[in-house]
């Protein structure tokens, strides 16, 4: 589904943010990308959707990422940003969710149908006519996910989905993410979230993959977690 081969990202100040990172994610698989602050998790997610210049190769559903295919890749991969306020910018939830489908050329009727479908999938139909500014952090997160689901992506990238969430919103979020059929790459330093959501874990540190394996195995080794800055 998603294959990342030897990608490296260097920031303009010369900082090597990612160094030859490689991994793959299969259909319907949920994988946690864990690491301390500054490990390169967000950079990796942004590189996968072509927001950052990089070397290496990324392919999704057989489509290789390039300048020409970036738009196509963004139809296949949906990214939910860490701060929902960066994602929601219209005055009505329905318009925000319809923003992606409209940009991809769907008619208003089709976009509206996708808005309804995404909100129903997340049990959030009651938010449709609300103003994003006035939603709680948990509701904003759900709307942010709905905005991505409305584009019918095959892969979901989630950047720190549990940030800004109170315990109840967090539980709802985990239930929601578990119910989705898309393959998911969840960047987080919330180890409990990784444990309850993902079957596999990739550990990043200083821009490099330091470990990869079943969640229980990786997260039960306190010594290694300490070594990775977790």
């Amino acid at each position: 589904m998603l294959a990342v081969n030897g990608i490296s990202v260097t920031y303009p100040d010369g900082n090597l943010a990612l160094d030859s990172v490689s991994f793959a994610i299969g259909d319907n698989e949920r994988v946690a990308l864990i690491g301390a602050n500054g490990a390169g998790k967000s950079t990796l997610l942004r590189a996968i959707v072509g927001l950052l210049p990089m070397s290496g190769e990324i392919s999704v559903c057989g489509v290789k990422l390039s300048k020409q295919t970036a738009s196509e890749i963004r139809k296949i991969i949906g990214i939910v940003f860490q701060n929902p306020d960066d994602q929601l910018f219209t005055m009505k939830v329905r318009d925000d969710i319809a923003f992606g489908p409209r940009n991809f050329g769907l008619s208003d009727e089709e976009a509206e149908r996708l808005v309804d479908s995404a909100l129903e999938q997340l049990n959030a139909v009651h938010l449709k006519e609300r103003t994003p500014y006035k939603l709680s952090a948990g509701e904003k997160r759900i709307v942010g996910i709905a905005a991505i689901l409305a584009m019918n992506p095959k892969v979901l990238l989630l950047d720190e989905p549990s940030s800004f969430q109170d315990p109840r919103s967090r539980r709802i979020l985990i239930g929601t993410l578990r119910s989705l059929r898309q393959a998911q790459l969840v960047a987080t330093h919330d180890l409990d979230l990784a444990r309850s959501l993902c079957s596999r874990v990739i550990v990043l540190r200083d821009g490099r993959v330091r470990a990869e394996g079943p969640t229980d195995e990786i997260l039960s080794d306190d010594g290694r977690l300490e070594e990775y800055g977790l």
């Binding site: 927001l51 963004r74 940003f81 992606g100 409209r102 584009m151």
Partner: peptide, 15 residues
């Protein structure tokens, strides 16, 4: 960036 990830190419397409 979030807008680009949702297909924004510089033209706003209102309902």
């Amino acid at each position: 960036s979030a807008m680009r990830c949702r297909g924004f190419t510089g033209y706003y397409r209102p309902r």
